[in-house]
Design a protein around this nucleic acid. Structure first.
Length: 255
DNA sequence: ATGGCTATGTAGCATAGA
């Protein structure tokens, strides 16, 4: 089973890229973030034509998450139960016996902003809930835009980014607490190229200059991690005209 | 050099992203 995550930065703008990419890569499950679409405007029919069923939870302008799958998408849950949030950032569903969580973690804006406080509170609720989910679902995959670069090698210039939002210690601690639940960062189960990133600023030719961050992740429960045979960042969509600023990440699970 | 792009809502810029 091929599972993937991609922050498309507007599904309306990126639908063509997504459909082309689905046809090329044929992933079994895709978690999409930043759809920026109300549910009534979700392109269900286009995706169905491409061979994918959809679950989605969106809103106008900001946020919005979706799970696309070639098989049935069941037991859909929107949001973090017990955590009241207007922002559509989490969607869970079961596909072929695997519990999938699609997450769009708050950006946080800057460490001195209210949005940063919201991000840390959000992550605390996320951690608490994922602890419960892991007990219920031995086959659990948590995919998404975490807006956290966990390690210095996930940042093009760690000295410049140290203490900044996306690479501050409290955020990295929160990420490590998710790993502490028993989740594995599938990307680091394998040998990877230097300067592997999933996001690059649109400005300053950041992509061409390999000035990025690795902030999109696929975390796997132990059961899935032991059967994970690869995890890679797909740079091709970032090279297209009018790309998303994020690249997709794809992991393969055997069995 | 605290900008640089891009998307959205909405009709000239403000807000947000990361």
């Amino acid at each position: 089973m091929k599972i993937a995550t991609w922050n498309v930065n507007s599904l309306k703008v990126r639908l063509g890229h997504l459909l082309d990419w689905l046809a090329q890569r044929r992933p079994d499950v895709v978690c999409v973030q930043e759809t920026k679409l109300e549910d009534a405007k979700f392109p269900v029919a286009d995706l169905e034509k491409a061979g994918y069923r959809s679950a989605y939870s969106g809103q106008k302008t900001y946020n919005g998450v979706a799970i696309l799958a070639r098989e049935a998408v069941e037991a859909i849950v929107s949001g973090i139960p017990g955590f009241a949030d207007e922002q559509k950032r989490v969607l869970s569903a079961t596909v072929a016996g695997t519990r999938i969580v699609c997450a769009y973690v708050p950006n946080g804006q800057s460490v001195d902003s209210d949005k940063y406080r919201y991000k840390l509170d959000w992550l605390a609720a996320f951690e608490r809930w994922l602890g419960d989910e892991l007990k219920k679902h031995p086959r659990l995959a948590v995919l998404g835009d975490y807006n956290i670069a966990p390690d210095a090698r996930d940042v093009h210039d760690p000295q410049l980014w140290e203490g900044q939002v996306l690479f501050s210690e409290p955020e990295r601690d929160a990420f490590n607490r998710l790993l502490g639940l028993g989740l594995k960062d599938s990307f680091r189960l394998f040998e990877q190229p230097e300067r592997s990133f999933t996001w690059w600023d649109y400005r300053m030719n950041a992509f061409r200059r390999k000035m990025g961050l690795r902030i999109d992740h696929i975390l796997l429960s132990t059961d899935l991690a032991t059967r994970c045979t690869s995890c890679a960042i797909d740079l091709e969509p970032r090279r297209l005209e009018r790309p998303s600023d994020h690249a997709p990440v794809i992991a393969e699970i055997s069995g």
